[in-house]
Amino acid sequence: MENMEKREMSRRELIKWTGLGAAAAAVTGVAKRAEAAAAAVGDKRYAMVIDLRRCYGCHACSVACKSEFDVPLGRWRSWVKTVERGTYPNARKHFLPRLCNHCKKPPCVNVCPTSASHIRPDGIVDIHEDLCIGCKNCIAMCPYNSRFTDPVRKIARKCDFCIHRITKGIAPSCVNTCPARARIFGDLNDPSTQVAKLVKRLPVLTLKTELGTHPHVFYIAADESTTRAMGGGE
């Protein structure tokens, strides 16, 4: 496996290096999965809306994500932060399901020294696993803690919007299981989709908007305090 990966990579590197990428890929017909998909979806902009009026903090999404990718213990592509706010009897719980924000201006991509982290034409921020050297800089630079090092393969990983499902027309695993239908996924560029309508018609919040990362996970009815790192103190 390891070996195969390496071989594939060196060819790929060579292609890049000699500036023949696109042409060579076309000629040899060996475009990678991600590239092939990307070519077909160039006009798309995938996004997720999380409707916190619906979410009841059940963690089905994060466990579904664990299962889909067999995410190792102690690492998360998705989790549900829960904060209690207010004073008895006016206290409330606030839930914040988290995942990669698929930022339009992602520091993780900017910092990556090998272009392993990249933005696909459909807006998904993904990692070329065979190019990743495991330097962890993207992990350090992501303002949202969305990334981790795979303890076995020693490369960076994170939520990829379930590319392997959505490119085949099936919703991401977390969306599929959410009993509250609080997670809605779709193409923001297509005005007929739920996500496009929701983002257009309802006030939505993105996390740490002030950082200028332009997240593409939008929250409806988010509690601002919960979205902050210090929400609720330590």
Binding site: E68, R165, I170, S173, D190
Partner: peptide, 15 residues
């Protein structure tokens, strides 16, 4: 479900 949307489920693939 609209044509533009992904299907909710029924299938799964190896990542």
């Amino acid at each position: 479900l609209k044509a533009a949307e992904v299907k909710e489920g029924g299938k799964d693939f190896s990542p």
